[in-house]
Amino acid sequence: MTKIIVLIAGLALIGFIIWWFFGKHEVATGTATVANNHQDIDIEVKGGYSPEEVVLEHGVPATLHFTRKDASSCLDHVVFSDFGINQALPQDKQVAVEIDTSKPGEYTWACGMDMFHGKVIIK
């Protein structure tokens, strides 16, 4: 009897994992605030990036302010392969990353180990 309960619980857990990680879930999107012809947005790095998608205005210089609040070494760098940026993120310190918004498009960023991803959309 115990074994059947354990089996059911285990299978339920597997189902939950599939739903939780592979199901469709909304992604946090943020829009930068524009002031004095410059746009800024804060991004919190904790078990991923929030927001994960950043919408920037085309042609307005932009700065993303990353703050890593996670001790994981997985997240200690942020890499924008399209812009040649590989920025170290010391824990609990705000780090500014300048983004060239001269070309509209979607640019992804990733952590140093390419496990976590985020996206900049320049419109």
Binding site: F21, H25, A28, K46, G47, D70, C74, M115, F116
Partner: peptide, 19 residues
């Protein structure tokens, strides 16, 4: 503990990693 906090933070975002 940092492994656990990091794992929990990414779990909330539907992510997972080595932690």
């Amino acid at each position: 503990r940092p492994f656990v906090t990091s794992a929990w933070a990414s779990f909330q975002k539907h992510h997972s990693n080595m932690d």
